[in-house]
Amino acid sequence: MNIDRRRIIAPEGITPIYPKTSSQQSKDDNDIKKMFIKTGLINNANGSSYMEIDNNIIEVSVFGPRPIRGSFIDQASVSVECKFLPHISQPNEGIFNENDGKKHGLTNIEQKISSYVETAILPSILLKKYPKSTIDLHITIIENNTSLLNLIGWIINCSSIALVDAGIEIKDIITSGQVNLKTVDGNESVIVDPNDNDNSLEVLVSYMNLKNDEIVGLWIEGSNDLDNEVLNGLITKCNEMSRKIRSNINAYLLSQQ
């Protein structure tokens, strides 16, 4: 009989073992993903926050107010920088990021995220209280399994908590809501806090919920024709989500004291 004596033969009828892949938690279309918040993990930053949202992980550290050099400025200057860890795939990177193999600098997606975050966060910071200073936000994406707009929404929430932890004076905490409008065979349905975009219309809105629900950032992605009524409905849905997140953040912050 021809038996391979050089190898240890496995018993018959077994299946190979694969590492368990992190699975998306199933959630209802109206639910918001479960989140975990922790502040002050980064010792050498003035403030920081760490968030796990389902299987996405975001970390934001705030440095500042720090002195500048050079000419006089009468209010703080703010910079935001977002980086994905090198082994993380970035949302839509095949479309937006040219593969030119550069190691330094931000990719186009990181650039887009940074400028949205700066636009949304800036109205809340009392810049005039920090003359001759800079405030730097460093965002690190540690794990990402969601769509670009959804990720940005959560980054905004995480950045606001980091600013509070740093003791930077802000008018209100900024939170975001993100919903998708999915069209299947002519039927439209709204998905709150989706995991992927599957060709639906995506809406991301950032709010100052305690300051008259002022909108500080808006990003709509998709090619649907939108009428006023539908858009209003989507923005209201975003506001609801933003308020829910805000009340959770409030509860966390108050429990920290």
Partner: peptide, 15 residues
């Protein structure tokens, strides 16, 4: 090219 956003930053703000 190294800075993502510079809406409020001054060109010569350096440390």
């Amino acid at each position: 090219s190294t800075i993502a956003s510079s809406q409020t930053s001054m060109i010569n703000a350096m440390s």
